[in-house]
Amino acid sequence: MKRFGAILLVILVYSAIVFYFGWSVHAWLETFIPVNKWFFGVVWGLIGYAILIARIDHRLRLFNIIGSYWMIIMQYGIILFPIGTIVTWIFPSQLRWIGWMILAVFLFILMIGTYNAFTPVVRDLSIKMTKKDAKLDKLKVVVASDFHLGLLSNKAHLKRFVKKANEEHPDLILLVGDLVDDDPIWFVKNGMSEVMKQLDSTYGVYGVLGNHEYYGKKIPLLVEEMEASNVHMLLDETILLADSLYLTGREDLTNKKRKQLSGLAPEKRNLPWFVMDHTPSNLLIPEKEGVDFHVSGHTHRGQMWPNHIFTRKIFELDYGYKQKGSLHAIVSSGFGFWGPPIRLGSQSELWVVNIKLEDVKA
C-alpha cells in the first residue's frame, strides 16, 4: 500500500510539472498567435508522457526519441520556467522577450550538449604495476563503457568508437557494461554487429553486462549478438590472457546472485589481475582482494550538469583515475549516453591506458 501511495505521489507531482511547463509555453505562444488550448493540451501531453508511451512497444520509436529530448526540458525546465514566471510577474509586458530568452538558453544547452555527446575524446593514462611472472613488459588497453547503443547512440556513433579505438592499435579492449540501451533490438536491426566486428586488438575484445542489459531482460540475445561481434562476454568468469594477466568480468550489481569477487580470484597470484565491473560500488573490496587494475563505468559523470554532485556523493570514485595501494582504478563517463543525447559537464570518451609491467626490483 505504501508503495502504491509513493507511485501515485510521483505521478501527481510529475503531472503537475508537465501541466505547469505546458501552461507556460501556451501563454508564451498566445503572444504571437491564438492557440487552441485543447489541441495544445493533447499534443503537450503526448510529448510529456512520450517516454512512457514508448515502453508500450518498441515500434513506437518516435515517442522514444521525443521522450529522450523531453528529459532535457525536465532537467533544466525545473530551473528556467520558475525563473521565467517570477520575471514575468515583475515585468508582465515582457512575456514575449522572456520566452525568447528561455528558448535561447535551451537551444544553447542543446547545441553544446550535442557536441559533447557526439564528439568523443581520448583520455590517455600511463601507469606502472608489478610484472610478477608476466611475459609482457607493456600493455596498451582501450577502456570504454556505457555505449547505450540504440536509436540515438546509434551505428554512426559506434563507428566513431571503432575508428578511434583501432587508431590506438591496442593490445586489449575492455567494454565495461551498458553496451545497449536496454533492448538489443536496434543493435540487431541496424546491423551494428558488422561495425563492432571491426574492432582490432592483439589479445581480443572483452565485455561485461551493465544494469541496462538487465532492464532489457534479453541477456541471452545480447550475449549471442556480442559473441557474434567478436566481443567475448565474461559473466562472473576469470580467464588467462597471453600468459601475462588474469582478466575477470563480473556480473553487474543488479544481479543479486552474482559471485563474490573472492570467488572469482585466480588460484595463482603470480600475474597481474584485471577486473571489469560495471558499477564502481566499492573499491575497498578489489583493493583487499589484491586486484591490480579495476575498470568501471555506470556513473556517466552525471551526464548533465549538475548531476555530478550526486554521483560524487554516492561513489568513492565516480569518475577518473585513482590509485589505492597497488590497485589502479578507472571509472569512465562512457562513450554513449542514456536518454537525452546531450552531455554537459561531461563528454563522451574512451580511455587509452599504457601499462608498464616492471620487475619487483625495478
Rank of each mutant, 00 (worst) to 15 (best):
K2F: 07
F4I: 09
A6I: 15
I7P: 05
L12N: 10
V13F: 07
V18K: 03
F19V: 13
Y20F: 15
F21R: 00
W23N: 10
W23A: 10
A27L: 07
W28S: 07
L29D: 15
I33D: 04
V35K: 01
V35Q: 00
N36Y: 09
N36P: 05
F40V: 02
W44R: 04
A54R: 09
L60F: 08
R61C: 11
R61W: 15
M71P: 00
L80V: 02
G84N: 10
G84H: 06
I86C: 08
V87R: 05
T88M: 05
Q94R: 12
L95C: 06
L95S: 06
R96N: 09
W97H: 13
G99D: 07
W100S: 06
W100C: 14
T114R: 12
Y115F: 15
N116D: 10
N116K: 08
T119H: 14
V121M: 11
S126T: 15
I127Y: 04
K128Y: 10
K132N: 02
L139K: 02
K140H: 08
K140W: 05
A144C: 15
S145R: 01
D146H: 08
H148K: 02
L152G: 00
S153I: 03
N154T: 09
A156H: 13
L158G: 02
K159I: 07
F161D: 06
N166M: 14
E168Y: 10
H169L: 11
H169C: 11
L174Q: 12
L175E: 01
G177M: 02
G177C: 05
D178V: 03
D181W: 00
D181R: 01
D182K: 13
W186S: 01
K189I: 13
N190S: 13
G191N: 13
S193N: 11
E194R: 08
E194D: 14
E194Y: 04
V195K: 03
Q198A: 12
L199Y: 03
D200A: 09
H212Y: 06
Y215G: 08
E227V: 09
M233S: 02
L234M: 05
D236Q: 01
A242V: 08
D243Q: 14
D243G: 15
D243K: 14
L247R: 07
T254A: 13
K259P: 02
Q260M: 12
L261N: 02
S262V: 14
S262G: 12
P280R: 01
P280I: 03
P280L: 01
S281E: 07
N282D: 15
N282L: 06
N282T: 04
L283A: 03
I285M: 11
E287H: 09
E289G: 03
F293T: 02
H294N: 14
V295M: 04
V295S: 01
G297Y: 03
G297L: 05
H300F: 06
R301M: 12
H308Y: 14
I309W: 15
T311I: 11
R312C: 01
E316V: 08
S326D: 13
L327V: 03
H328M: 05
S333R: 09
G334S: 08
G334I: 03
G334Q: 06
F335E: 00
W338G: 00
G339T: 03
I342F: 12
R343A: 07
L344M: 11
G345N: 12
Q347W: 03
L350P: 03
W351V: 08
W351Q: 11
V353D: 02
N354C: 09
L357N: 00
E358P: 08
D359R: 13
